[in-house]
């Protein structure tokens, strides 16, 4: 398992090391978001999503990723922007805590690097509990990416639910 420090901490570390931070950029609705590349396991086309019973309400279903059962969360729905079209969307497999979670997004744009001093803190108005997952902002090319902090994408209770609930297949 990989431990993640927050992006600002990473930024500090990388600033000292004078190296680039690498992100995966994707789009939901009209806004671009980015995740640190170490939090991403892989990108998939939307596979068949099984809507199993007794799955937590915030989980859209589960997918079978080479034998591993992963919960899938529609990030667009979570942002109250409707839902992702399964024909065009992508699943970004993100490592949150000790579990991997599939994040349904509209389009995956690019993998890009950014110097640490290019990363700006989020505006003050984002400093609200339900916007905690926005960790910073960075401009790359024509897009302004909102940087996401993977552990904040889900509430601790939700993470707990995913890690302990009975829906996960018993060995």
């Amino acid at each position: 398992m990989v431990e993640f420090s927050s992006i600002l901490q990473l930024k500090k570390e990388h600033k000292e090391a004078e190296t680039e931070l690498i992100f995966l950029g994707f789009t939901v609705g009209t806004q671009a978001y980015a995740l640190g590349v170490f939090a991403v396991r892989e990108i998939l086309r939307v596979p068949r999503i099984y809507s199993l019973p007794r799955v937590p309400v915030f989980v859209k279903g589960v997918i079978d990723l080479r034998g591993a059962i992963l919960p899938v969360i529609d990030f667009k729905e979570r942002l109250d922007l409707g839902s992702v079209d399964p024909q065009k969307g992508r699943v970004v497999v993100v490592v949150i805590g000790s579990t991997s979670v599939g994040l349904l997004v509209d389009t995956v744009e690019e993998v890009f690097g950014s110097a640490p001093d290019q990363i700006q803190p989020p505006p003050k108005m984002f400093n609200k509990p339900h916007l905690q997952f926005i960790d910073g902002m960075v401009r790359f090319g024509e897009r302004l990416y909102l940087l996401l902090n993977p552990p904040d994408l889900l509430t601790p209770q939700e993470v707990d639910t995913l890690e302990t609930q009975s829906w996960s297949p018993k060995k």
Partner: peptide
């Protein structure tokens, strides 16, 4: 479309590989 996806995944793996992954990132 599949190649694009493959290239993105390769880019992610290359980025995770750090400095040594850069040529892979270039290829991707």
């Amino acid at each position: 479309e599949q190649t694009h996806l493959l290239a993105l995944n390769a880019a992610i793996i290359a980025a995770q590989a750090g400095e040594h992954g850069k040529p892979f990132a270039v290829v991707a």
